[in-house]
Every structure is written in C-alpha cells, then in structure tokens.
C-alpha cells in the first residue's frame, strides 16, 4: 500500500482528522507545480492553497468509497493545474504580462555539473536553478506543463496523460518537443556567453 492509498483510506474513515496529513504530504509538490507553471511565488501559493481547500470541500461531499478510490496525486495535480489556468487567464485579462517570456537567460551552466557543497557550488546551483526555471517559463504553456509534471514533479507518462486527459503519445511528444526547445535555449545561452566572454 503506497502513501497515497494509506492517506485515502484514512480520509475515507475520518476526513477532518486526516486532511492535515494530505496537506503535509502534497503541499510542496503542488506549490512547486504552480510555481514552475506560473512563475510567481504569490500566485503559486494561492493556487496551491486553493487546490487543497477545493480538494477538502469536494471530499466532504463524497461518500467514503469514492474517497478511497481517489488517485490523490493525480487528482490534486488536476485541481492545481485548473487553478493555474484560471490564474493565467485572470492575469492576461488584467493586462499583466503572462510570463517573463523573452527575459534574458544568461550564463548557463552545462546540465549535469557534478554537485559540490562549497558556498560557491551552492550559489552556482541556485543560479542554475533560476536559469532552468526561467527557461521553463519561456516555453509555451502546453510544453511547460508536461515538462513540469514529468520532469520536475516526476509523474509517470501514464499519470501525466491521465492528469491532462490527453493520450500518452501526445504527452510524450510534447515532452520531447519541450526538451528540444530547452536545448535550443541552452545552446543560445551558451553561444551568448561565449560571445560575451570573447568580446
């Protein structure tokens, strides 16, 4: 029995008594998904919070058997993505720039640099994370979403397909294209860095 199955069994028995465990188990990943999809920490916190509140309210109206059958990970992911979508729409309607699309993505580091633990290594890793996060945000939404689910959150292809309601083949192709776009960005960044250094 995996952690989610244990959680849904507890929730079916005692929703109020077990819900905090769901929050603790899923808040980081829901926040991460929202953050990497939306790019804004405040919007992300709101989306993750709202997703958990909606999940609770939905379960409060479900019968025990239905709660037990929930695939918590995927279900919560679907809820948070829906909220991300409406946040993005709201933001667009407000006229706010949807995302930092063409922001300069400077000074890339080759992926797969062996990790070190000195202060410089840590700072470099943080810079590295910021650059990768910026590249993700520069991707078209469809590619960004599948890559966040597959590679940041670590859902399997069948899980991503179920969450998005798309065929698995489509999801794989979108991930592949997204990665190809990221590679193009990385190469462009590397070229820019090289030109800056040799200028």
């Amino acid at each position: 029995m995996d952690a989610d199955a244990r959680l849904t069994a507890d929730l079916a028995r005692d929703l109020d008594g077990s819900f905090e465990a769901v929050v603790l188990a899923h808040q980081d990943r829901l926040y991460t998904i929202a953050l990497r999809v939306l790019g804004d920490p405040r919007d992300a916190e709101e989306a993750a919070q709202d997703a958990l509140v909606r999940a609770y309210r939905a379960m409060a109206g479900y019968e025990a058997a239905r709660i037990r059958d929930l695939r918590l990970r995927g279900w919560l992911t679907t809820i948070v993505l829906n909220l991300c979508r409406s946040t993005a729409l709201r933001r667009a309607a407000r006229g706010a720039p949807p995302l930092t699309l063409d922001g300069p993505v400077a000074l890339p580091i080759e992926p797969g640099t062996p990790p070190g633990n000195g202060p410089l290594d840590i700072a470099e890793r943080r810079d590295d994370r910021e650059r990768w996060s910026a590249r993700l945000l520069a991707l078209p939404t469809a590619y960004r979403t599948v890559i966040v689910l597959r590679h940041v959150d670590g859902l399997s292809y069948p899980e991503v397909a179920a969450v998005l309601g798309r065929p698995e083949g489509t999801v794989k192709a979108q991930v592949h294209r997204g990665i190809a776009l990221l590679r193009t960005m990385l190469e462009a960044d590397t070229r820019r860095e090289f030109q800056e250094m040799s200028a």
């Binding site: 990943r29 829901l30 926040y31 990497r36 992300a44 590295d128 990768w132 993700l136 890559i147």
Partner: peptide, 9 residues
Amino acid sequence: ALSTLGAVA
C-alpha cells in the same frame, strides 16, 4: 537539471 526545481511550500 529539471528535477532540482522542486520548491518548498
């Protein structure tokens, strides 16, 4: 590289 992008709520 992408798997390091997890954030803490």
